[in-house]
Design a protein around this nucleic acid. Structure first.
Lengths: 129, 129
DNA sequence: GCTTGACCTTTCAGTTAGGGGAGAGTTTAA
DNA sequence: TTAAACTCTCCCCTAACTGAAAGGTCAAGC
């Protein structure tokens, strides 16, 4: 099938599919005459796999690793689990950071009158050395 | 003072300060002869202000807004508060998203043996249509 | 057989917020 | 005087695409 069909079936945009093909994440056949790419059912399955992994916040390179594990029928599940636990740790770290940020901003906003007067503890905090 | 001194006093890198000057976030004097930028105490104060706002996750454009409010001695604090509340809402939204992601990945990891065998519910979940 | 429109191709540029480094000019201290 | 340290501009690089431009391909309809 052509790229439009593959994109539709995988829920990705044509642009994204082309990008994945360009960086070698998938390798559809390509007609020498027309340049048209030709996608198999298997290519579509990989695209769907990548789409889900991306929604789970895995990077393109992590997707590449997961994809090679996905294709290796003898892979040890420990490798996949390790990647996943690492990703969870990354997310936890980001959650901590954002929570601290949120609390600080919230504290500042709570102390700002938010009226027509110029006094503003938020700007004060930003300008305090 | 020169850019190195301004960078040191503001806790930013020279590259970052130069970037901020290039995009007009700050406007140090510049010697026509040598091209050297000359920073005032006020420029340094602004750099420190921007540095803090960036650490609070405000984007460069949000910093630009905050900076113009910071310089406007008649600004209503309501404007600053609105920007801050909007930023808090953005962070909350990101927190929700990451928390959902974390829970889903955690659920998958909990059900994966993580041993030498190839069976892996994580990959199964990624490849299920 | 021709045209139209949908689809496909490559390539370039832009996005965020700078980082790295080259090559050249400037300043300062020994 | 010279060497080190500092500064300048310019260009490429990052992640993961998106948009636009300019052109080739294909199927349907007349």
């Amino acid at each position: 099938m052509n790229i439009g069909q593959a994109a539709k079936l995988s829920g990705l945009t044509v642009k994204t599919v082309r990008y994945y093909a360009n960086i070698g994440l998938i390798m559809p056949l390509q007609d020498n005459q027309t340049g048209y790419r030709s996608f198999s059912e298997d290519d579509v399955a990989k695209l769907q796999f990548i789409g889900k992994a991306r929604r789970f916040d895995f990077s393109i390179n992590e997707c590449r690793e997961l994809l090679s594990l996905y294709q290796d029928k003898n892979r040890p599940s420990s490798e996949v689990k390790a990647l996943t636990l690492e990703k969870i740790a990354q997310i936890d770290s980001k959650l901590d950071e954002l929570t601290r940020l949120r609390d600080q901003l919230s504290h500042l906003a709570n102390h700002c009158q938010g009226d027509g007067r110029p006094e503003c503890p938020i700007l004060d905090a930003l300008s305090r050395s």
